Computed example of a mutant assay.
Amino acid sequence: MIFIAWVVYSWVTAPYFGPTTLPADIEIPLQFKIGVRAVEVGMSLVWMYFNYTQIIKPIRQTGQPNTLGLLGIGFFFAIFWDPAMSWIQQGCVYNPCAVSMGFLSAEIPGWLSPRAHLLLEPLVAWTGGIQTF
């Protein structure tokens, strides 16, 4: 947890922290943009509902989250390792239409792929289950 927190802090304070964008000459169709935004909004709402019903509400009732809530917390932290297949050479790509701030790959010690800060990871992926971009 301390290692993940250190890498996330290094990423957020890095000078390149910001949206990863497409080149200006590439146009994304409007219906695709609408679909991506709908998935982002929908998954964010599902994530908030999940947090309330599986973590907050059980803690209020019993003093501890239920098993599904603990799995959700685990998936939240597991997204840190999502781009691990790109450790040496980029092997996974997400859609740059989704809201993104790059990814923390360049801050992981030993990361070898070039321009790792440009590896795209949608922020909604941190909700623990959106792997469809």
Rank of each mutant, 00 (worst) to 15 (best):
I2L: 04
F3Q: 00
I4D: 10
V8H: 03
S10T: 12
W11A: 04
W11G: 13
T13F: 12
P15S: 13
Y16D: 08
Y16A: 07
F17D: 05
P19A: 05
T20F: 09
P23R: 00
E27A: 01
L30Y: 09
Q31D: 09
G35R: 01
R37F: 14
E40M: 04
E40F: 02
N51V: 09
Y52M: 02
I56C: 14
K57R: 06
P58T: 04
P58V: 12
R60D: 15
G63K: 00
P65T: 07
N66H: 08
G69W: 02
L71A: 13
I73Y: 05
F76N: 01
F76H: 04
F77N: 02
F77P: 14
A78H: 12
F80D: 02
F80W: 01
W81E: 03
P83R: 00
A84H: 08
A84S: 11
A84W: 13
I88H: 09
I88Y: 10
I88A: 04
I88P: 12
Q89W: 12
V93A: 08
Y94W: 09
N95Y: 07
C97N: 09
M101R: 03
M101F: 15
G102S: 01
G102R: 00
F103I: 12
L104Q: 05
E107V: 12
I108L: 09
G110Q: 12
W111M: 00
W111P: 11
S113N: 04
L119N: 05
A125Y: 09
A125W: 11
W126A: 08
T127M: 11
I130T: 15
